[in-house]
Simulated scan of single mutants.
Amino acid sequence: MDKKEMVCIVCPLGCRLTVTKNDDEYTVTGNKCNRGKEYAIKEMTNPTRVLTTTVRIKDGLLNRIPVKTNKPVPKDKIFECMQIINSIEVQAPIKMGEIIIKDILGTGADIVASRSMIKQIG
C-alpha cells in the first residue's frame, strides 16, 4: 500500500488530500469536490504541467519573449521541452498567441507567445 499527501491546486480551497494506492486502485480523501479526486489520481498516474518560460527574440524591443504551452505537457518531458525552447530564436515582430513551436515532442501542445513584441526600430 502506497500513501501520499498533497495539496490540491484545482480551485482556491487548497484541500489537503491523502491518496492511497492498493494494487491498481486509488482512494482519495480530504477532497471537497470531484475535481480534487481527479487531480490527485492524475498526479499519481500521469502528472502534467503548463510550461511557462521565455524564448530569445531577434530585433525585438526586448531580448526575450514570454511563451507557454497551450495545454499541459507530461511532467517528465519538461526538461526535454526546455532544451528545444532554449535552442531557438524567433524574429520580431511576434503577436500574442502566435505559435512558436507546433506540437512540441509530439505532446499535442504548442508553444505560443504570451505577449506581442514589436520590432525595434533603429
Rank of each mutant, 00 (worst) to 15 (best):
I9R: 10
I9W: 03
V10T: 14
V10K: 15
G14P: 06
R16A: 12
R16M: 12
V19R: 03
T20M: 14
T20G: 12
T20V: 15
N22F: 09
D24L: 11
D24G: 13
D24M: 08
E25L: 09
T27M: 00
V28H: 02
T29K: 12
N31K: 07
N34M: 14
K37W: 06
Y39A: 11
A40Q: 11
A40T: 10
A40G: 13
I41S: 05
I41D: 04
E43Q: 15
M44I: 01
M44R: 05
N46V: 03
N46C: 00
P47R: 10
P47K: 10
T48G: 06
T48Q: 11
T48M: 02
R49M: 11
T52E: 14
T53K: 07
T54I: 05
R56T: 01
R56W: 05
R56G: 08
I57P: 07
D59R: 09
G60H: 06
L61I: 15
L61S: 13
N63T: 14
R64F: 08
R64K: 11
R64T: 12
I65L: 15
I65W: 04
P66T: 08
V67I: 05
K68F: 06
N70G: 05
K71T: 04
K71A: 01
K71Y: 00
P72D: 01
V73D: 00
P74N: 05
K75H: 13
D76R: 11
D76E: 13
D76H: 13
D76L: 04
K77F: 07
F79Q: 11
F79N: 14
E80S: 14
C81H: 00
I85Y: 09
N86M: 10
N86I: 04
I88F: 02
E89F: 02
E89S: 00
E89N: 02
Q91D: 13
Q91N: 14
A92E: 08
A92Y: 07
A92W: 09
P93R: 05
I94S: 01
K95A: 15
K95S: 15
M96S: 14
M96K: 14
E98V: 02
E98T: 12
I99G: 01
I100L: 11
I101F: 09
D103I: 10
D103L: 09
I104M: 08
G106A: 12
G106Q: 15
G108Q: 04
G108R: 02
D110T: 15
I111P: 08
I111L: 15
V112Q: 00
V112T: 02
A113M: 02
A113P: 03
S114N: 09
S114Y: 03
S114F: 06
R115G: 12
M117N: 00
K119F: 00
K119L: 00
K119S: 04
Q120D: 13
Q120A: 15
I121F: 06
I121Y: 07
I121E: 15
